[in-house]
């Protein structure tokens, strides 16, 4: 928050506006995640997930990662969420809102999560972060060069991982010919 405000001072946008934008993004993420985890109706949960992902996109924008902002919206909000909605709607059992999202261990899990949150929050707020003087703007061209230079090996491996995921999805999800 402080860093963002400091940056905004340099980019001469009013701090109040930046604060408000941050609050909106933050609220979207938290509300969206809570809805995705707690709602009974799976379709509603997916829609809330889309809200959370939008909020994340907003955070990317405020960190001046414009490329990530666009990709986040295109891929996650536009692609993944749509696929999820298709998945929920095409799976007849899943669309019925009678799958309880909670079980006996909810309370223990919530307490543990709260504990973890407090510890993480404490550590994150007390850490002396290095604040870079200017926002690390990465031009898209540089990302393209990076994919064929520094990141060429991970880039190639990703393609195999995706292939494995695709083949695996078909093997696991395909209907057996016997059961037709």
């Amino acid at each position: 928050m402080d860093e963002i405000l400091a940056k905004s001072a340099q980019s001469s946008a009013p701090a109040l506006w930046v604060g408000a934008a941050f609050a909106v993004s933050f609220g979207l993420v938290v509300a969206g995640s809570l809805g995705a985890a707690l709602l009974k109706n799976l379709l509603h949960a997916v829609l809330f997930l889309a809200l959370a992902l939008l909020g994340v996109a907003g955070l990317f924008l405020m960190l001046s990662s414009t490329f990530l902002f666009v990709v986040q919206i295109l891929v996650y909000v536009g692609g993944v969420v749509i696929l999820l909605i298709f998945g929920v709607m095409l799976t007849s059992k899943m669309a019925q809102p009678d799958i309880p999202p909670r079980n006996r261990q909810t309370l223990a899990a919530a307490l543990l999560a709260l504990l973890l949150f407090c510890a993480t929050a404490y550590v994150l707020t007390t850490h002396p972060w290095m604040v870079s003087a200017e926002p690390p703007a990465v031009p898209v061209a540089e990302i393209g060069v990076g994919l064929l230079q520094k990141y060429v090996l991970p880039f190639e491996i990703v393609s195999v991982v995706l292939l494995v995921a695709m083949v695996g999805a078909i093997v696991l999800a395909r209907r057996e010919p016997e059961s037709k």
Binding site: P154, V164, V171
Partner: peptide, 23 residues
């Protein structure tokens, strides 16, 4: 990045291999 990627590679293939007994 490479650690994450190869770990996910291994995990993904393991999840699939575990489920191979379709019936």
């Amino acid at each position: 990045l490479m650690i994450f990627l190869s770990l996910e590679f291994l995990s993904l293939s393991s999840y699939i291999l575990v489920g191979f007994l379709r019936n």
